[in-house]
Simulated assay, not measured.
Amino acid sequence: MDTLLQALRPLSAPPEGPAWNHAEMNEWLGDQARLPAAVLLGIREGVQPRLVFTVRDARLPAHAGQVSFPGGRSEPQDADAVDTALRESEEEIGLNRALVKPLGFLDRFETISGYCVTPVVASIATEARLYPSPDEVAEVFEVPLTFLFDPANLRRYTMEFRGQQRPMAEFVHAGHRIWGATAAMLCNLLERMDRA
């Protein structure tokens, strides 16, 4: 856990400027403005710390059925990315923000859907109860950090997208496929920890 904490950007210095994959996304999106968003990489405390994921509802218009971190678009009333991540987590998985301790940030990430996402890493108290919002989330599940930190569980491959080859990464745990932006953010964490 100490290695993870040392890899994070401090809360006092949130990431600014272009995301780490900005040049790649410019090839797909051009110079259009990216919408601000934030996600919560919530680490459930305990003997075996676990990272919290959601499975998006199959009826959603975008990214239906995919595994993601709780989070979403920033709203005008949000004070900052931490506020966005906590508000969205409360809405999506019923996470009481009083039981969350923000720890730091990963590097920002741009998505093909036009968002610039700030990943907020936080610890979640053991007693926090999580339950999916039926309108947005089909399931909440947790994956041990030891699984995600084991290089044997990271699969890299290429995928054709709009006629071009894109490097991709994925993890598969207990029948859940973690890929796309979610896996890319996990890879950023591993790289910052010198584990990728």
Score class of each variant (00 low, 15 high):
residue 2 D to C: 05
residue 3 T to S: 08
residue 4 L to K: 01
residue 6 Q to F: 03
residue 6 Q to R: 09
residue 8 L to T: 02
residue 9 R to Q: 09
residue 10 P to N: 12
residue 13 A to C: 05
residue 13 A to P: 03
residue 13 A to N: 13
residue 17 G to P: 01
residue 17 G to V: 00
residue 19 A to P: 01
residue 20 W to Q: 13
residue 20 W to S: 12
residue 20 W to V: 14
residue 21 N to R: 06
residue 22 H to F: 14
residue 24 E to V: 01
residue 28 W to D: 06
residue 28 W to V: 07
residue 29 L to T: 08
residue 32 Q to G: 14
residue 32 Q to F: 13
residue 34 R to W: 04
residue 35 L to K: 12
residue 36 P to H: 01
residue 36 P to G: 02
residue 37 A to V: 01
residue 37 A to L: 02
residue 42 G to R: 13
residue 42 G to K: 10
residue 43 I to N: 01
residue 43 I to Q: 00
residue 45 E to T: 10
residue 50 R to S: 14
residue 55 V to E: 14
residue 57 D to S: 13
residue 57 D to K: 07
residue 58 A to N: 07
residue 58 A to S: 07
residue 58 A to G: 05
residue 60 L to E: 08
residue 62 A to M: 15
residue 64 A to H: 11
residue 65 G to C: 10
residue 65 G to S: 11
residue 65 G to F: 08
residue 66 Q to S: 15
residue 66 Q to M: 15
residue 67 V to T: 12
residue 68 S to Y: 15
residue 70 P to R: 11
residue 72 G to V: 10
residue 72 G to P: 08
residue 72 G to Q: 10
residue 72 G to K: 12
residue 74 S to C: 10
residue 75 E to Y: 06
residue 76 P to L: 09
residue 77 Q to G: 12
residue 79 A to H: 13
residue 80 D to K: 09
residue 82 V to E: 12
residue 83 D to V: 10
residue 84 T to G: 04
residue 88 E to G: 03
residue 88 E to W: 15
residue 90 E to G: 13
residue 91 E to M: 14
residue 92 E to P: 10
residue 93 I to Q: 00
residue 96 N to E: 08
residue 98 A to H: 05
residue 100 V to P: 04
residue 101 K to Y: 00
residue 102 P to W: 09
residue 106 L to A: 04
residue 107 D to F: 03
residue 107 D to P: 05
residue 109 F to P: 00
residue 109 F to Y: 09
residue 112 I to Y: 14
residue 113 S to I: 13
residue 116 C to T: 07
residue 120 V to Q: 11
residue 120 V to C: 11
residue 120 V to F: 11
residue 120 V to R: 12
residue 121 V to H: 00
residue 125 A to W: 04
residue 125 A to T: 12
residue 131 Y to F: 08
residue 131 Y to W: 05
residue 131 Y to D: 07
residue 132 P to F: 00
residue 134 P to D: 12
residue 135 D to Q: 12
residue 135 D to C: 03
residue 137 V to Y: 11
residue 138 A to R: 04
residue 139 E to N: 14
residue 140 V to A: 04
residue 141 F to K: 06
residue 144 P to G: 03
residue 144 P to V: 01
residue 148 L to K: 00
residue 149 F to C: 05
residue 149 F to Q: 06
residue 150 D to K: 06
residue 150 D to S: 14
residue 151 P to W: 04
residue 153 N to C: 08
residue 153 N to P: 07
residue 154 L to S: 09
residue 155 R to Q: 12
residue 157 Y to Q: 14
residue 158 T to G: 02
residue 158 T to F: 10
residue 160 E to Y: 07
residue 165 Q to H: 06
residue 165 Q to I: 01
residue 165 Q to Y: 02
residue 167 P to H: 03
residue 167 P to G: 01
residue 170 E to I: 01
residue 173 H to S: 01
residue 173 H to L: 01
residue 175 G to I: 10
residue 176 H to D: 06
residue 177 R to S: 07
residue 177 R to T: 08
residue 177 R to D: 02
residue 178 I to Y: 08
residue 178 I to M: 09
residue 179 W to Q: 09
residue 180 G to R: 11
residue 180 G to Q: 11
residue 181 A to H: 11
residue 182 T to K: 12
residue 183 A to N: 12
residue 191 E to V: 15
residue 192 R to F: 02
residue 193 M to S: 03
residue 193 M to W: 02
residue 193 M to E: 03
residue 193 M to T: 06
residue 194 D to F: 08
